[in-house]
């Protein structure tokens, strides 16, 4: 076999990407591509897992049997999505345990939205409606991402997520149409979640460090600012329809642009939260570490058992 130079390999790699041919696990890829993907997929997986906590916070207090079941199923989906994504990262040689240790040590990041607290039941509505709404906008383009296992995982995730946003909107609109107390609860929740939701799309394009190369590699397919604008444009009419007010005095339809103009995002707050100083950063990581530590003896036991009964793992469950 001819030995190709790195330059030539990179050229062929980029040609494949340009021709929309997917990259698969054992294909040659530039180290930087692999690293960027591992960072992005792990971060995405961590967001799903940490994202279970703010909503998990209300499972035991859900106000009806139906809401309890829906919320459980939704948070469970997030665990599933985390798992699909960790699996995608494993195909790049990133061990799940390693990845989780990086999360716990603070080396790996996750979406900063999950560092905000869920203080009322209405927050279950806001998270589904706004946070999942924003996430879906981010994720749909990723179904066409250049890396096969990631794209396939995202197809699965997006298919399953379609109910998440709807159940959130159903919660918030039920509240908005409910008693005055419920309506106030919905508005108060929107006030707290609106801006953090806009921050979910990441820094403005001009300040985003990874964007350009990622677009070229088709790991990222639409820019942060475009996605954010799209989100504002679809969400504002939804809020109006259920009689809630978006907490932005600069929000206004711009006829000329055909888009909403909106106020300036407080990037200081965003940076503070990303750096670990949000309202719940400590609690979120603490909860994940505790789950891992408390589960260690269970994982060890299952492994020891499998070792012992190698070749005859048919656990005998007698029929009764």
């Amino acid at each position: 076999m001819e030995k190709l130079s790195i330059d030539e390999l990179e050229k062929r790699f980029q040609a494949k990407i340009d021709a929309d041919i997917k990259i698969e696990p054992n294909d040659w890829m530039p180290e930087a591509y692999r690293k960027t993907l591992i960072r992005q997929i792990s971060q995405h997986a961590h967001s799903e897992i940490v994202g279970m906590l703010p909503e998990g916070n209300w499972i035991t207090r859900a106000p009806s049997l139906k809401r309890k079941a829906v919320l459980l199923a939704k948070v469970q989906d997030e665990a599933g999505h985390g798992l699909y994504l960790y699996s995608a990262a494993e195909t790049l040689g990133m061990d799940r345990e390693q990845s989780i240790d990086d999360l716990h040590s603070g080396k790996a990041k996750y979406s900063s939205i999950f560092n905000y607290p869920t203080l009322t039941w209405a927050d279950m509505g806001s998270i589904g409606w706004l946070v999942d709404g924003a996430a879906i906008m981010n994720q749909v383009p990723l179904c066409r991402c250049s890396y096969g296992p990631y794209a396939r995982a995202m197809v699965r995730v997006c298919k399953e997520e379609s109910f998440h946003q709807r159940q959130g909107f159903e919660i918030i609109s039920t509240l908005a149409n409910g008693t005055p107390e419920q309506k106030a609860m919905a508005q108060e929740s929107l006030n707290r979640w609106w801006w953090p939701a806009l921050m979910m799309f990441g820094p403005s394009d001009k300040d985003s460090t990874h964007s350009e190369q990622s677009m070229k590699w088709k790991i990222k397919r639409v820019s942060n600012d475009d996605l954010r604008q799209q989100f504002v444009d679809v969400t504002v009419p939804q809020a109006e329809m259920i009689g809630l007010t978006v907490p932005d005095k600069d929000l206004k339809w711009n006829e000329e642009r055909g888009h909403y103009d909106f106020g300036v995002i407080n990037w200081d707050e965003f940076n503070q939260v990303v750096q670990g100083n949000g309202p719940c950063n400590f609690e979120r990581i603490e909860a994940r570490k505790k789950a891992k530590e408390n589960g260690m003896w269970v994982r060890e036991a299952a492994l020891a058992f499998a070792e012992k009964r190698k070749n005859k793992i048919d656990i005998k469950i007698k029929e009764i």
Partner: peptide
């Protein structure tokens, strides 16, 4: 247990 299981698979 949801969100606090000993491993993701068992949480699910």
């Amino acid at each position: 247990w949801c969100g606090h299981g000993p491993i993701l698979e068992e949480d699910i």
